[in-house]
């Protein structure tokens, strides 16, 4: 039985620390996607994703609306990645990227995926959350609706609108 974000957040706040693992599992890929879009490097994005969840756990107390956990988490991921990008000078980043590439040639996304990821990250908040939960975390539409506390119809519409937007952006990029 899929638990909603609200149920999981409240359980963690009630002391069931292990429930946070479910939130980590659920949002691992979406968070990594946000970090990857900014940092452009898989390994760095992975580290920043871990930092994001640890920071989110520490700040969970300040989350006033548990139903907004997803967008709130993405905002933290965005901030963590920007901070990391700011800390590392361009030269340092290049060194990291080079090292990552040498270690793992697939350490970075190919051009088309970079475009697509950038487009996904720029989707409106609600659409971005459902796209990430549906495609990146591979939840069915019903489960996404349950997780975010919206109706199946709303989620279907949001997915459809997001696809139209993404298609337009990709068409523009291919021109």
């Amino acid at each position: 039985m899929v638990k909603t974000d609200v149920e999981l957040v409240n359980a963690v706040l009630d002391g069931e620390k292990c429930m946070f693992a479910e939130l980590v599992r659920r949002y691992e890929r979406p968070v990594r996607a946000v970090a990857l879009d900014i940092l452009g490097d898989y390994h760095l994005a992975n580290d920043i994703s871990q930092d994001t969840f640890v920071r989110a756990y520490e700040k969970l107390v300040s989350l006033r609306k548990p139903q907004a956990f997803g967008p709130w988490l993405m905002k933290i991921a965005h901030r963590c990645a920007l901070e990391s990008a700011g800390k590392n000078s361009r030269a340092t980043n290049l060194e990291i990227n080079k090292a990552a590439m040498a270690e793992n040639p697939n350490g970075q996304l190919d051009e088309e995926n970079q475009w697509l990821l950038a487009a996904v990250v720029k989707l409106p908040k609600a659409e971005k959350q459902v796209v990430m939960l549906h495609y990146f975390d591979r939840n069915g539409v019903r489960d996404v609706a349950k997780i975010v506390g919206r109706s199946v119809g709303t989620v279907t519409k949001q997915l459809s609108r997001a696809r139209i937007r993404l298609r337009k952006i990709l068409e523009r990029s291919e021109k």
């Binding site: 292990c18 599992r25 890929r29 495609y135």
Partner: peptide, 17 residues
């Protein structure tokens, strides 16, 4: 395809927790 490229780390949840 993008989702596969973003990938997941088997030890990710364990490391965070």
């Amino acid at each position: 395809n993008l989702s596969s490229s973003i990938g997941s780390d088997e030890k990710f949840v364990e490391n965070v927790m």
